[in-house]
Computed example of a mutant assay.
Amino acid sequence: MSVTIRRVKKEDEEAWTNLWEQYNVFYKRTIPIEVTKKTFERLCDENVRMYGAVAVDNSSQQQIVGFVTWYPHANTSSIEEVVYLNDLFVDPTIRNKGAGRALIEHVADHAKTIPAHHVYWLTQHFNHRAQLLYTKVANKSDYVHYMKSL
């Protein structure tokens, strides 16, 4: 499969939201519609340093088959910023065909232009299929993630 990765745009909202909902079901979370709408608005706003890109299937009339979101931020252990890859999802029917890797590389390419020190991301321990890709494109850290809800 051949995909093109490009910045998300307002016309993508319906297709992006469909994939976003599948992503949230996979992670067993419920995101309120107003948060979804605000997230999409931020991704399309060139004045907000939260970025989004989509994978477009070149062989299927430009169908969106995946997305990624990321944002740079300051870091206490480097002069350069770092980039947090926040969300990554590929339509389950086309996985293992390069779209996920292309989305990650798109984020890395953008990070190099900042320039950022590194790109990092998290995944849930049960997401074994994604981890098969992640171990090919990055190094697994020794950190354990904690979160305190407010």
Score class of each variant (00 low, 15 high):
1 M>P: 14
3 V>I: 11
6 R>G: 07
12 D>G: 05
14 E>W: 00
16 W>T: 00
16 W>Y: 12
20 W>Q: 05
23 Y>L: 02
23 Y>D: 01
23 Y>I: 04
26 F>C: 04
28 K>G: 03
28 K>S: 12
29 R>H: 01
30 T>R: 06
30 T>E: 12
33 I>S: 11
37 K>Y: 05
37 K>W: 04
38 K>S: 10
38 K>H: 06
43 L>H: 02
44 C>Y: 09
44 C>T: 15
48 V>I: 15
52 G>N: 00
52 G>E: 00
52 G>R: 00
54 V>E: 03
57 D>T: 02
58 N>Q: 14
59 S>A: 14
60 S>C: 13
62 Q>Y: 05
62 Q>F: 03
63 Q>G: 01
64 I>A: 03
66 G>S: 02
71 Y>M: 11
74 A>F: 14
79 I>Q: 05
80 E>D: 14
80 E>H: 15
82 V>Y: 07
83 V>A: 09
85 L>A: 09
86 N>T: 07
87 D>R: 00
87 D>Y: 00
95 R>A: 06
95 R>T: 06
95 R>P: 04
100 G>W: 06
105 E>M: 11
106 H>Q: 10
107 V>T: 04
107 V>F: 00
107 V>I: 00
108 A>V: 14
111 A>V: 13
111 A>R: 10
112 K>R: 15
113 T>K: 13
118 H>T: 11
120 Y>R: 01
121 W>R: 02
124 Q>V: 08
126 F>D: 13
128 H>Q: 13
128 H>T: 12
134 Y>C: 05
134 Y>W: 07
137 V>D: 08
138 A>P: 09
139 N>E: 14
140 K>H: 10
145 H>S: 14
149 S>Q: 14
